[in-house]
């Protein structure tokens, strides 16, 4: 004798549930947010974010998926973990920011955010890791900056040259011996990730 439910629509917490499910490493506690603002107050780049983390969590709760994924907030996260250690509700805020980045890339919405270049920086970085097993600063700097900041690239190049002169930058990338082994592992991981709902890795199960 279940009482009749009112007409269908997206369940109010659907987006929040999606975020929680896609955040790895056990309980993210996102649902426990009491909107106290400790995260927003602690965030080093808080003044430059379009929404403070707390505000973003309220938006997640309200199901404002597009607005959330278009926000520059996750891209401005510096991974300092201040919010995470200070949060009185033990919410895994930094991990949730990574989740939102992945979702934004998947939905293609980041391109409309003021941090539109950020994913390309990450992608350029991981390209080198995928191909060599190591990061490669010179390649990263030149490829990323020439593509996105051609105007300031010259000044950056100055710093890059300085790095080279100081012996702090390699001119050619290093490749690990077991690159094939690593690539096999990464390929398998990508395949499993896709099977397992792309991004879902052990949030609330």
């Amino acid at each position: 004798m279940v009482a009749q439910r009112s007409a269908a629509g997206p369940a109010p917490g659907a987006f929040m549930d999606e975020v929680i499910a896609a955040t790895p490493g056990g309980a993210s506690h996102l649902e426990l947010c009491v909107q106290c603002g400790t995260c927003g107050g602690s965030c080093p780049s808080g003044p430059d974010m379009e929404h403070t983390p707390r505000h973003l969590f309220a938006m997640i709760r309200a199901g404002m998926k597009e607005e959330v994924l278009r926000s520059n907030t996750p891209w401005y996260c510096v991974s300092c973990y201040y919010c995470m250690v200070r949060c009185p509700q033990e919410i895994h805020i930094t991990d949730i920011m990574y989740t939102l980045k992945r979702m934004a890339i998947k939905e293609g919405l980041y391109r409309e955010s003021s941090a539109a270049d950020a994913p390309d920086f990450s992608e350029t970085f991981i390209d080198f890791v995928n191909n060599y097993g190591r990061s490669f600063e010179l390649g990263l700097a030149t490829r990323y900056h020439l593509r996105h900041h051609p105007l300031t690239a010259v000044r950056k190049a100055g710093m890059g040259l300085g790095m080279v002169r100081k012996g702090r930058m390699d001119l050619t990338p290093k490749r690990i011996n077991g690159i094939e082994q690593l690539q096999a592992i990464l390929a398998k991981a990508r395949e499993l990730g896709a099977e397992d709902g792309a991004i879902s890795q052990g949030g609330r199960q």
């Binding site: 603002g37 107050g41 808080g46 003044p47 929404h51 707390r54 505000h55």
Partner: peptide, 11 residues
């Protein structure tokens, strides 16, 4: 005192 004024959404 550094704080987010949550009613403004600003640090």
């Amino acid at each position: 005192i550094q704080v987010e004024d949550t009613l403004l959404g600003k640090q």
